[in-house]
Amino acid sequence: MKTKLKGISYSKYGYLFSIPFVVAFLIFTLYPTIFTATLGFTDRKGLIQENYHFLKEDIFQNFKSVLENESFKTSLKNTIMIWVMNFIPQITIALLLTAWFTSHSNEIKGKGFFKVVFYMPNIITAATVAILFKAIFSYPKGPVNDILVSSGLLDSEYFFTNSRTASRLIVAFIQFWTWYGNTMIVLVSGVLGISPDIYEAAEIDGANGVQTFFRITIPNLKTVLLYTLVTSLVGGLNMYDIPKVFLNGGPDSATLTTSVFIYNQAFAGSYIYNRAAAASMIMWLVIVICSAVLFYLMRDKDEIKLNKQVKKAKKEARMVAKGGVNEWRL
């Protein structure tokens, strides 16, 4: 890339143009992150306490008390449970729709319409969706109870929002309902990025639709699937809006997620900043570890093998060049 003209160096403009980003990043992201991490090691509590100190006896005390806190354990369990309950149907249905929408042998009409409709819930404010679903599942008179009772599926109205399992399922369903359209569009665009030559070759070889999907589409979709998995996991572990507005973590902490736990610890009356900060850092670690494990599991094994072979070949070539041991001469 040419960046010099008439002997003038333009590299200083690279620094100049990135100043706003760097400044905003330092002030609004890096400093609060470090500050949060530090608070986790202090005795900072309450709104007015201005002097706070690092914990002297046991510097990890906040972290320990968070990890031993029953509420936190429940919230972590709920968060993971709700994420899994939403992700499995989400990815299954998204993959199914992807297979249909990209099928060459059975063209489906109205794809554009379906995409617009399936994606729509994603654009609506999560708080609105939460209250809408609360109204729809309300007891004793709500649309869902109305359908179930008048169709004879239930004898009497069911108190959905009072049941732990039902509430969790509803939160997971809302998550699924808002995100499957998004996942489907991402996967479809991933499939459209796969070279058509591979599909043509498969067709010539006589592969049927199911074989093509599992042998060609899925392996080639690996990076996109990883992207979906990681973004969904990070989003799921930070789930806040829907559980908070839907039932504020209830009933009996059944939909209490870690983000709601952190909010309640820090801002909803109790102001236990140090423990909330410790919980935030623990969540951050969980997210980083989960993503790292996913990247490790989904890494391209063939590529690693190829790299190793290339390295080995290079090493051998060097040996030959040095006049070292050469098996062909033996």
Binding site: Y31, P32, T36, N238, Y240, S280, I287
Partner: peptide, 9 residues
């Protein structure tokens, strides 16, 4: 994620 920095922020 934004939630992680919220206390310090």
């Amino acid at each position: 994620p934004a939630q992680v920095t919220s206390i310090g922020f």
